[in-house]
Amino acid sequence: MNKESIQLHVNGVRHEIEIPPSKTLLEALREDLRLTGTKCGCDDSSCGCCTVLVDGVPMLSCVMLAASYPDASITTIEGVAQGEQLDPLQEGFCVEGGAQCGFCTPGIILTAKALLDRNPKPTREEIAQAISGNLCRCTGYTQIYASIEYAIKKLRTTPVAAASGGR
């Protein structure tokens, strides 16, 4: 199989990897960059587990060809915390029980992050709409809402943390 050298810009780091052009971003992240926080839950782009941010926009890495995104800034779950300091969303998912088995968690946190970057005070209805492409099989979503709302509250009360949003 022909491999090509491609560039990926992930979590602020530039990588150059040799992969076949048919490789998805999901596979490249997991296999070549060993960023395994991005999960594969289905084969038909229906579950949302593989969500990453591409220039701040949530997308499914399982339908993205890695070689198609040399110029994009990609954020995976590994790039959400600031060093040891968890993002308010990550903290919310710990404190409010949004992560049970944890498999959908990275995708939902990233989707929620993009939402809060655009709309810091979403209603529960807006949250439900925004994460409606990310399936969870454990929680019934109630504690996921609570987790995201924890972050909303925290971001509102600590303006410094809010400034770290964006891409």
Partner: peptide, 26 residues
Amino acid sequence: LVAGGTDVVPNLRAGLFSPRVVVDLK
């Protein structure tokens, strides 16, 4: 041709198409 990939890529994975060249329009 592939644009967003949301239709084409799952179809490629299911073996519904086997192009030699994929032209990415993005």
